[in-house]
């Protein structure tokens, strides 16, 4: 019985990891290609949630959760075109400062538009409740999230591995100078990557709006976990981030099973141990431009 309970926590951790992945993957992609640690990433997550809540009032939850990431991705274009683009080759401290500042501006903007008090939305009735598969219990809603994340993951993997777009992006991560020498401008690719990254974060926000408190500082809350995932996974590695997100979810679940009070601390201990053994992260590649 005890073992089954533990297994249930492991499976639940995988589901939770899928949600972390939505935020961490974009963060990792933007860093890998542009060399920018996007501290404003959480703001797009929060915006995704707020836009979704707002649209739900008019369109219902289903369409809103689809539209909201696209709306935020469009903001991502402006973000890349007018802000990020100026900092690719600049001192990293500048991009840290500008994205940190932007995160604060975004949080205050949300506060001005929607107020400091949380806004609320709920899961459609058909996705409420839990399903019991064998001995395991799943929230119906989280299974939906998991399915969507899996589909997105497959899509992004195919995009990066099997298309010419993906080849340029991967080459751009390793040798941007060579890509330039071949006469390919990386900038449009970067715009696309930023759109993709912030769109994924917004999708995470939209999905979590009905089951968490939607408030202006929610973006800052999620960033810590997202960073832990990226650091554990290793920069530049697609599968590294995937594995790290799932691992963080699972380790947290197991920790809560045995020692509930240590639940939140467990992921930082995990990060510490991984860094001790593999300073570059689990599957981190050696990227010349960052060495």
């Amino acid at each position: 019985m005890q073992f089954e309970f533990l297994l249930e926590q492991v499976v639940n951790g995988l589901v939770l990891g899928g949600y972390y992945l939505l935020i961490a993957l974009g963060l990792s992609l933007i860093f890998s290609v542009g060399g920018i640690v996007n501290l404003a990433h959480g703001a797009f997550y929060a915006l995704g949630a707020y836009v979704c809540v707002e649209l739900t009032k008019r369109l219902g939850f289903g369409p809103s959760v689809v539209i909201s990431p696209f709306v935020v991705a469009l903001l991502g274009i402006l973000f890349e075109r007018f802000i990020l683009r100026r900092f690719y080759s600049a001192d990293p401290i500048l991009s840290l400062l500008v994205t940190f500042g932007l995160a604060m501006v975004a949080e205050q903007a949300i506060r001005m538009m929607w107020g400091a008090a949380p806004v609320s939305t709920e899961i459609p009735q058909s996705f409420r409740g839990s399903v019991i598969v064998g001995d395991f219990l799943f929230s119906r809603y989280r299974l939906l999230i998991l399915a969507v994340v899996a589909a997105i993951l497959l899509g992004i993997w195919l995009l990066l591995q099997k298309t010419s777009f993906g080849r340029v992006v991967r080459a751009g991560i390793q040798r941007p100078d060579m890509v330039a020498a071949l006469g390919i401008r990386l900038q449009p690719y970067m715009t696309a990557i930023v759109m993709l990254g912030v769109g994924l974060a917004a999708l995470g926000g939209a999905f979590f709006a009905p089951i968490t408190t939607v408030h202006p500082a929610m973006g800052a809350e999620i960033m810590t976990v997202a960073f832990v995932v990226v650091v554990i996974g290793g920069l530049g590695s697609f599968w590294g981030v995937v594995i790290a997100a799932l691992l963080v979810g699972v380790v947290r679940g197991i920790a809560i099973h045995f020692e509930p009070a240590a639940g939140e601390a467990s992921i930082y201990i995990l990060m510490f141990l991984v860094l001790l053994v593999r300073p570059r992260g689990l599957l981190g590649e050696r990227i010349e431009k960052f060495e």
Partner: peptide, 30 residues
Amino acid sequence: TNLVKQYAEFGFPYPLVGFNLNTGDAWAAG
């Protein structure tokens, strides 16, 4: 707020009560 929302998400049959609530948190739960 988070617990109340996620409790509704899982839809457990056991009633949820509480010894502490501020109305702001109730409003936020929706």
